[in-house]
Write a protein that binds this DNA or RNA. Structure first.
Lengths: 251, 251
DNA sequence: ACGCCTATCCCCAGAAATGGGGATAGGCCG
DNA sequence: CGGCCTATCCCCATTTCTGGGGATAGGCGT
């Protein structure tokens, strides 16, 4: 449809992706950019067992039905070698490089071989990960007899990243009805140390309080969030940004 | 506008970043691209308390010394609002959008104000996250009286992403010791229901297992992640993308 | 001064989780 | 085939958490 070249393709795609308000819009935009960049297929997906958790995950693609059925039958969403490799890098990679990135098992090689037999040759995958959300990626692929257009890979990198973010926006990955309880400083401190795996007694030592006081703070924090267990308290506190993964993992 | 000169800048930078074998090389390349894109500053960093965990983290920048000293004094590596916001998205964002992305505290506003007073105005931050590694980002900033060059932000997005990956390569972040444990299907199921606040007994009812089996699955999951408490297990499973907030909150 | 929030401390009983030790059965892979 | 992983079940003792009930003290605003 559109004749685009170089960054013109990119500019056009960003406009489409930004305006897309439905997954159908995004599929159309991806099909367009994928075609213009010289690819045969695109696939934007969360790395989940799609059959089991379909409603919470996004998957947009124009892969052959036969391949998708085969993929889902074997529940490859999380164990697919390309998906696994995409968890080892922050930018896009061609599938030729997968063996350098992860240890391929016999099963992985079998998966790649089967993909080839079903029309999927080489490809380029842009990983996308947001802490607290399912890992995902946006891939562009060519048929077995064709080569990945290496010259435009930076553009594919951009398109993949923008497309994934558009998918997050469209599918409300971050939307959340307000009602965010406020915790006191001490309650937050206790929640943070709790999320780090400390017992009430240990938190008491760390903060210089009595064990009873820490228990009380966490009890009140649970009450404010109206959750029954500290594991949910940690999750909710993370989701609301009360504490962050960096907070928890820093030493 | 995305101009041919913009594309030229990008091409040149990718070459430099790919060839860079030391952090000094990368700093030089970043300074060059930052300048050419119309920014005054760049900062590529892991979101950690740099003073405390400097050896394991990367930080390359050309910020004013005064600002960095102020930043480190307050250990803002993890709580800096821009860093926190970068954990809520998969692509770059201008700092003006931070208030839409996270809840700003009074302290956050103070931090942003102080940055302004120390020569840092608006900016554009590209998040970079690899499961199992510290979150990080690559930012480009302008002085308070200048505007972020919005037209070239896609190029900044690309440059930031490539620069971060180059930093990972140069600093050997691709170590396999940051392993993400694999859980079995059942273990994952149990972790998910646990993160939703269910007791072992309840999970057993839900999954049609005995309470002992659920206890066992969660025990083994904790062992694989080498964590002592289910709250940490929930946090780690979230961080690694094994389960997601959408999984937990969907009903 | 009074109400409200916060932080701190205390007690108790019962439920739940943790950390050991086991066993059986099926599937997959070399 | 024999070893390894997985899923399922079971027992035990101890620790930890949860959900009730309290108390004292300071700060803050009206």
């Amino acid at each position: 449809m559109l004749t685009m070249s170089g960054l013109g393709i990119a500019r056009e795609f960003f406009g489409l992706a930004r305006q897309a308000s439905t997954n159908a819009d995004l599929v159309q935009a991806l099909a367009c950019v994928s075609d213009n960049l010289g690819f045969d297929y695109f696939a934007l997906a969360h790395h989940v067992d799609f059959a089991a958790a379909g409603h919470a995950a996004v998957r947009l693609h124009n892969y052959p039905d036969e391949w998708v059925a085969w993929f889902d039958d074997r529940r490859l969403g999380v164990s697919d070698p390309v998906h696994r490799a995409s968890q080892a890098t922050s930018i896009g990679f061609t599938w030729q490089r997968v063996p350098e990135m992860i240890r391929l098992t016999a099963k992985d090689r079998y998966v790649l071989q089967c993909a080839r037999e079903r029309g999927i040759g080489d490809g380029f995958t842009v990983p996308a990960h947001v802490p607290g959300e399912a890992t995902g990626s946006c891939s562009f692929a060519v048929e077995p007899d064709r080569a990945v257009p290496v010259d435009i890979l930076p553009l594919a990198q951009l398109a993949g990243a923008f497309a994934f973010e558009a998918a997050r926006r469209i599918n409300g990955m971050r939307s959340f009805d307000a009602h965010v309880p406020t915790l006191t400083e001490r309650q937050r401190d206790c929640v943070l140390w709790m999320a780090r795996g400390k017992t009430d007694w240990e938190i008491a030592r760390i903060l210089g309080l009595s064990q009873e006081t820490v228990t009380q703070h966490l009890k009140q924090a649970r009450e404010r969030y109206d959750v029954p267990k500290r594991s949910v308290l940690a999750v909710r506190a993370l989701f609301d940004g009360l504490i962050s993964f960096s907070d928890i993992f820093r030493r």
